[in-house]
Amino acid sequence: MCDQAVLTVRLVRSFEHRNFKPVVYKDVNLDQTVDEFITFVKRDVSTRAGLPPPFKKYEYDTMKIIHQAHGAKTNELVMSLEDDEKLILRDDCRLTACGVANETELAFFKMADYEKFKANPQTEWW
Results as ranks from 00 to 15, higher is better:
D3K: 13
D3C: 09
Q4M: 13
A5T: 01
V6A: 12
V6N: 12
F15Y: 02
F15A: 02
R18L: 06
P22H: 13
V24D: 09
V28Q: 01
V28E: 01
N29V: 02
Q32D: 09
D35Q: 15
F37P: 00
F40T: 05
F40M: 14
F40V: 05
R43K: 15
A49T: 11
G50D: 00
L51R: 12
P52G: 01
F55G: 06
K57A: 12
Y58H: 06
E59M: 12
D61C: 09
M63D: 07
I65Q: 03
I65N: 00
H67K: 14
K73A: 14
T74D: 02
L77R: 05
D83G: 09
D84W: 00
D84H: 03
E85F: 13
K86W: 13
K86F: 08
D92I: 01
D92G: 02
C93P: 11
R94D: 14
A97G: 08
E103G: 05
E105A: 10
L106H: 08
A107C: 00
K110D: 10
A112I: 03
A112Q: 01
D113H: 04
Y114Q: 02
E115M: 11
K116T: 09
F117L: 02
F117C: 05
A119L: 06
A119I: 03
A119Q: 08
N120W: 00
P121N: 04
P121Y: 02
Q122D: 10
